[in-house]
Computed example of a mutant assay.
Amino acid sequence: MALENCLQVSTVTTTRAGVLHCCHPLSSKDKLNFPNHTGLKKPILTFSLPTPSFHSSGGTYQKSRIICKAKAVNEVQVVTDSNWNNLVIANESPVLVEFWAPWCGPCRMIAPIIDELAKEYAGKIACYKLNTDESPNTATQYGIRSIPTVLFFKNGEKKESVIGAVPKSTLSTTIEKYVDA
């Protein structure tokens, strides 16, 4: 996903009382410079934006803030009983949900495959995982009796299920059925 789709930078002018006076997005001509960090397992984005500060008798100042508008769609997200309807049922794109538990050996075997598929099909399919120990109601609702179980949804409707630690090709073939070309 392009960085410009993820970040919205805005300048906010406030008073000492913290009242918001104005907010306008950074223009597309402005550039953000992110330093490169090496030697870390996960990348870290740290940066500062040079924004002019000013002080007047009214005590106002200007500052910049970063708001990430887009979700990281290239990784598996966690879904629970409480957010199931919003993330899975109301999702307009096809959805893959892995039902798993931390104590399940085959679940740990299939987890890296689900992670790879989330990256490969980023923007085409949403990938979630539901811990059956922490969210038993949804697992019961869908009749999950064996884990890992992967369910496929399209337009909020359950389409297909795959039970067990299957090869990546099996899951890819199933995803291809529901991804619009």
Rank of each mutant, 00 (worst) to 15 (best):
V73A: 11
R16T: 15
P167T: 07
I125Y: 01
G39S: 04
A17L: 12
W100N: 06
P35H: 03
T60G: 05
E160F: 08
L26S: 12
N33T: 13
H24N: 11
S53F: 10
V179H: 02
I147K: 09
G59E: 03
S135R: 07
A122I: 03
E157Y: 01
L20C: 05
T11Q: 13
N83K: 04
L26T: 14
T51I: 15
H21V: 14
A70G: 03
L49P: 08
L130E: 05
T80W: 03
K154I: 09
S135C: 11
C6V: 13
Y61N: 14
S64D: 13
R108F: 10
K41W: 03
V162Y: 00
I66M: 13
C23N: 13
I89T: 14
N91W: 00
I67F: 12
V12H: 12
R108N: 10
Y178L: 07
K168W: 03
G39D: 02
P102S: 13
V9K: 07
I175H: 00
D133I: 03
P35Y: 01
K69P: 02
T51W: 00
T46F: 05
A118V: 14
Y121G: 10
F152M: 13
R108D: 06
V19E: 13
P106R: 03
C104P: 05
T149L: 03
C68G: 03
F34N: 02
P52E: 04
R145L: 09
F34G: 11
S169W: 00
R145Q: 09
V73F: 02
N36W: 01
T38S: 15
P112S: 08
P25S: 09
K42D: 15
S56F: 00
V162G: 03
A2K: 15
P50I: 06
L7D: 04
S10L: 05
C107S: 11
P136R: 06
T170L: 05
N36Y: 00
I66P: 01
N83R: 01
H21W: 08
Q62M: 14
M1D: 02
E160Q: 04
G123A: 07
H21G: 02
E157W: 01
K119A: 15
A2Q: 13
P35I: 05
I110T: 05
V88A: 04
D180P: 02
V88R: 07
N85S: 11
I44G: 09
L117Y: 07
E4V: 09
K42E: 06
P136N: 02
G58T: 15
A101L: 04
T51P: 00
I163G: 10
I44V: 14
D115P: 06
G18N: 06
G164D: 04
E92I: 02
K168G: 01
F47Q: 08
P43M: 06
M109A: 03
T51L: 14
V179K: 07
Y61C: 15
V9P: 02
